[in-house]
């Protein structure tokens, strides 16, 4: 055995291997046994790591947790943690890749709508924790000339998001969180795709849009010049939708495109 004391960095890498990869060999050699096996001592930290992250993902993905059951969820989360341990101490940001992981994960990939519910839940989580921002003051838009208004490129509030989902994940999500088994049983998972807007009011709202309304909103959120977004809009109520987005504070700023932009 190497009797040279480890540097702090060497020790921390050994602890990493113990906690993340269950490889105690090196870390155990650095620990005072003192009546209790070093592996048992390391196991306490490994369990905390797994349980804290499982809990963080359960809070971000409550409907997935209920859909697949606690046991399956914990098993899947263990696999996910092995593949993608957190790279931030802000655990609200942990788990963005979980929906993609679920698509590749055998125990749940047979339930094709589960990854879609997960995608919706991640967007709900992002919306919940997005930083605050002041809504765009309408007076700033009113002060523009007609030519300038046509060239407006909006910036959306970071809490507003759009999602196209193959399955009716919004209905499933709502029924699961409401424990409404009758509503859940009535959903045809083959219906789709659905087009949803996730946004923040007092809480988080998930609103289903028509495809044309969704595409127009997407153009606005992507900063397409207003005249171009309106020209391409396949819905009659584009102006009304724009007014709703402004009134709800979903647009927070703008810049002017040059004349050549479209």
């Amino acid at each position: 055995m190497n009797t040279q004391p480890p540097t702090l960095l060497e020790l921390q890498h050994a602890m990493y291997r113990s906690i993340v990869a269950s490889d105690d060999a090196e870390a155990a050699a650095y620990i005072v046994a003192d009546g209790i096996d070093p592996a048992a001592r390391l196991g306490i930290y490994r369990n905390t790591f797994a349980s804290v992250l499982t809990n963080a993902l359960r809070l971000s993905y409550p409907a997935v947790h209920r859909l697949v059951g606690a046991e399956c969820f914990e098993g899947v989360v263990r696999l996910f943690i092995d593949e993608a341990p957190p790279r931030t101490a802000n655990l609200d940001d942990y788990g963005a890749d979980f929906p993609d992981f679920l698509m590749r994960c055998e125990p749940v990939s047979a339930l094709a709508y589960v990854p879609d519910v997960a995608r919706l839940e991640w967007m709900v989580n992002r919306t919940l924790h997005a930083p605050d921002a002041q809504p765009l003051a309408l007076a700033r838009l009113a002060a523009l000339t007609e030519d300038e208004q046509a060239r407006v490129r909006f910036m959306p509030h970071s809490s507003a998001g759009l999602l196209r989902i193959d399955h009716p994940a919004d209905s499933i999500w709502r029924a699961v969180l409401a424990h409404d088994d009758a509503a859940l049983a009535a959903i045809d998972p083959a219906i789709g795709p659905v087009w949803v807007l996730v946004h923040r009011t007092e809480g988080v709202e998930v609103t289903r849009l028509s495809e044309p309304a969704w595409r127009f909103t997407e153009a606005l959120f992507a900063g397409r010049p207003l005249h171009s977004a309106l020209e391409d809009a396949a819905c009659d109520d584009a102006q009304q939708l724009l007014a709703q987005h402004l009134a709800a504070g979903r647009l927070v700023d703008f810049e002017l495109a040059d004349h050549a932009s479209s």
């Binding site: 890498h13 602890m15 990493y16 930290y45 905390t48 790591f49 804290v52 655990l91």
Partner: peptide, 10 residues
């Protein structure tokens, strides 16, 4: 360590 957050006070 190694940019991974081990979610505990180690």
């Amino acid at each position: 360590v190694g940019s991974v957050y081990l979610a505990d006070l180690l």
